[in-house]
């Protein structure tokens, strides 16, 4: 019936010092389809994998615009994600009504984390089953945060959440050092390659991914499908060129070249 004695409500500790319900909520994030984010000094790119539930249905939206300077990508329970996005939107709009300026991203993320934390300390509540990558720009530059159902939040250069996100994380870990000075196009390219990693061999097409950008002089927006398809094709062509060169190299040297990317 139960996995153990201590997971029947959120607020009960296990003797090992764990809160199982909170951990289950974090598990829900891992089961959602992948979302990734990465940033340079001036741009942040979010990307997500769109999985339709059935052949007959369309997929659910996983990237939301919060304000001109902030957007989120979610993994986990989409319904919870929408509720939290609505909260973020209303915080932003109230702030700009009062101060006529954009809400600093770090402050929004703290408010969001506090909201999630409350759910881990009330017996009549449940944690949100969603992880959010919050991308935004403010006075202090570009930011990428990850918000967890536990109420923890972290700032990242690049991060991936959701199913098979480990593959994308590995890709990003290998490449992130160059991100700070990357161009907008390079960030999008890395985003698409990172997404591709999570697909495990499945072909990357514009119909199974969403990409969004926010940056200096560029309000948050989701790229349209046609643009993404063109980008994917241009990157694939270049990748093949690289692969051909690699093959040519292989003929020359008997040593097997390690295949990156």
């Amino acid at each position: 019936m139960f996995r153990n004695q201590y997971d029947t409500d959120v607020t009960t500790w296990s003797p090992q010092g764990r809160l199982f319900q909170v951990e289950y909520a974090m598990e829900a994030v891992k089961q959602g389809s992948a979302a990734i984010g990465l940033r340079s000094k001036t741009y942040i790119v979010l990307a997500s994998v769109n999985k339709a539930n059935s052949e007959l249905s369309s997929h659910q939206k996983k990237i939301f615009k919060v304000d001109d300077h902030i957007g989120v990508a979610i993994a986990g329970l989409t319904a919870d994600g929408r509720v939290l996005s609505r909260y973020l939107r209303s915080e932003c709009i109230n702030y700009s009504f009062t101060y006529e300026s954009p809400l600093p991203v770090g402050r929004l993320v703290v408010q969001l984390a506090d909201k999630a934390q409350v759910c881990t300390q009330r017996s009549w509540k449940r944690p949100y089953g969603v992880g959010l990558l919050v991308a935004g720009l403010d006075e202090s530059g570009a930011h990428l945060y990850y918000n967890c159902p536990s109420g923890n939040y972290f700032e990242y250069q690049a991060f991936a959440i959701g199913s098979r996100s480990q593959a994308a994380k590995t890709y990003l870990e290998r490449k992130f050092e160059s991100f700070m000075d990357s161009s907008r196009e390079d960030l999008i390219k890395h985003a698409l390659f990172a997404i591709k990693e999570t697909l495990q061999g499945e072909k990357l097409t514009s119909s199974i991914c969403t990409v969004a950008v926010v940056g200096v002089e560029e309000p948050f927006h989701i790229l349209d499908q046609k643009t993404i398809q063109e980008l994917i094709e241009s990157f694939e062509i270049r990748e093949e060129e690289v692969a051909d060169e690699g093959a040519a190299m292989q003929e020359q040297s008997p040593e097997p070249a390690p295949m990156d990317i």
């Binding site: 101060y99 006529e100 600093p104 402050r107 006075e139 202090s140």
Partner: peptide, 19 residues
Amino acid sequence: MWDDGNSFGPKEIHNYLTR
């Protein structure tokens, strides 16, 4: 108290006062 490097400028204060 946020202590995060962001601070209100005159534009923010002006709008707040208007409100």
